[in-house]
Design a protein around this nucleic acid. Sequence first.
DNA 1: TACGTTTCCGAAAACCTTTTAGTTCTCGGG
DNA 2: CCCGAGAACTAAAAGGTTTTCGGAAACGTA
Lengths: 334, 334
Amino acid sequence: MAGRRVTINDVASLAGVSIATASKALNGRQDVRASTRERVLAAAAELSFQPNALARGLLSGQTRTVGLLTSDSVGRFGIPVLLGAEDAFGAGEMAVMLCDARGDAIREQHHLRALLSRRVDGIIVVGESTNPRPSVSKDVPVPVVYAYGPSDDPEDVSFVPDDVGGAAMAVEHLLALGRRRIAHVTGPRHYKAARDRAEGLRIALEAAGCEQAGETMWGSWSQRWGRHAAEMLLMAEPGVDAVFCGSDQVAAGFVEAARERGRSVPGDIAVIGYDNWEVLSTETRPALTTVDMNLELLGRTAAQHLFAAMDGRATPGVHRMPCHLVIRDSTAAA
Amino acid sequence: MAGRRVTINDVASLAGVSIATASKALNGRQDVRASTRERVLAAAAELSFQPNALARGLLSGQTRTVGLLTSDSVGRFGIPVLLGAEDAFGAGEMAVMLCDARGDAIREQHHLRALLSRRVDGIIVVGESTNPRPSVSKDVPVPVVYAYGPSDDPEDVSFVPDDVGGAAMAVEHLLALGRRRIAHVTGPRHYKAARDRAEGLRIALEAAGCEQAGETMWGSWSQRWGRHAAEMLLMAEPGVDAVFCGSDQVAAGFVEAARERGRSVPGDIAVIGYDNWEVLSTETRPALTTVDMNLELLGRTAAQHLFAAMDGRATPGVHRMPCHLVIRDSTAAA
DNA sequence: TACGTTTCCGAAAACCTTTTAGTTCTCGGG
DNA sequence: CCCGAGAACTAAAAGGTTTTCGGAAACGTA
């Protein structure tokens, strides 16, 4: 909390050289005698000199800073993506500016302007769901990469989890366990995530020549709905031997209600969730088998491709990132 | 993704004035004729001019940017604080640079240097627990405010939840319901949060002239421990009529195990959690009465006090922010 | 007309660093 | 001793904005 910031000028004076030489010495450039370099470095250390990134950025046009614009309230899905991105960037010397638009388009524009006036080198937009969202790339003179929620412009660079594949993987696991009467309880139909997962289920069942047990039950992403659905389903389709749930919350509710109704999990009914939200999936009893969307990897990948785009090597299109299955007790072999 | 950035020079030329006049017009300064100002504004709008924050910051020494340094992996507690801070800043024109040190002191130093070289105007440090953490303020030429985890230097500005008060509030609620045999199940003893909450319990009981039922049960912050503790406690102290749990996870486990052992909640045993982690507290059955630490408010307050400190009005000391009780079904009246 | 006052505008400095294009130094060879 | 080449160094410009200060224009008064 003190005095004037120390500049390269101070370092140069202390070392008894010009600022040009000091700059070269500090940046490891040629054309400076070893002994001189040493003197400059010593002076810089003594004054604990920190080059002013603003001045440097003004000159080079590169701030080594990227913006991260989230539309949800950095919720369940934004966090891991953010962490992955921060991770990828942090490895170099990048800094991340975080903006949360709270789902408000006006605020988003505002944040976008703020980021641009600070001359970020690129922007990652994190969606609140996997539903496509309006592109911002046209208004923006730097590369943009979309993570989790893709842009509605196919020319943009987007990374989304492969929900169809993830769901198919889950159902194939159930089939491999010998389950044949498989039901599906999931979230609201207007979520692309819910529709994609239902589609994955359909594909896997069809490939196995198997019928779905009952209709897909659309509801909400809540534990409450999982419980409610369990009650209805066990009444309507008593022969069900497996349930693929659209989220861990739904699955947790389902498991609880099923057990209360005297059905053992996984004995009578195997249950699979989605998200691998560990506070739920590892703490329910039995612990949930679930699909992990590798969100942190997704974030890291998005960041790496933002780097590439900043480097002129853009990779347009919607890239689907594979999910993986985390097998726990709720689908243990009989 | 196009051409050279437009500068104030372009605006000035288009408006047919000097850059000095353009600057004054754009910044609402005096000494510029109304008609001229209009011309400049029109030119700026036409070119969609964005002033270069780097140049501005270089000159003014103010970047209108703050750093947010978290030590945990932006975990359970960092998020709300971050949101609150972003909220407080976003109202003005502040931007937030996010750095996650992953609990590593080296990385923290690294991030700190990165923030300082970018000339942030201030820094918020978010702790991973309420245990005091090493101060960084000496090495830093800008104001620092600590949120959630206080600095170990009492001259620094820290904001922490008032866990003692929160716990007392919870216990008073139990007492008001007529419960007298109150037990305590909590997390590891090396967490100050756990110790503070136990202390709040002691104070409230003492004020009511009431004995604690059994010893405080130290364990971990997990649902598993809650279940385990419930089994032990119901065996050892069958007369218990209320349990104050050190976290919602512990409480959720406790409730589950108690119900399985045939004790009704809240009929036989009232249960209170801590944290108001909504995914747990609203979804367990019965829904948990719990202590909410107002973390988002805490973050916002920290941000506001950082503003004050940047303005030369620092407020040294460890400020304890009040918690509030969220009453749900797990302590409903008999 | 001369002069003083306002009002408005523009030239230039300042912020800090990097890079370019010299300039000086050193030293070996003639 | 001088020259030339290469190494080591420096002055200055550039990057975009704000601010200060001086100057010009416009206008009113004597």
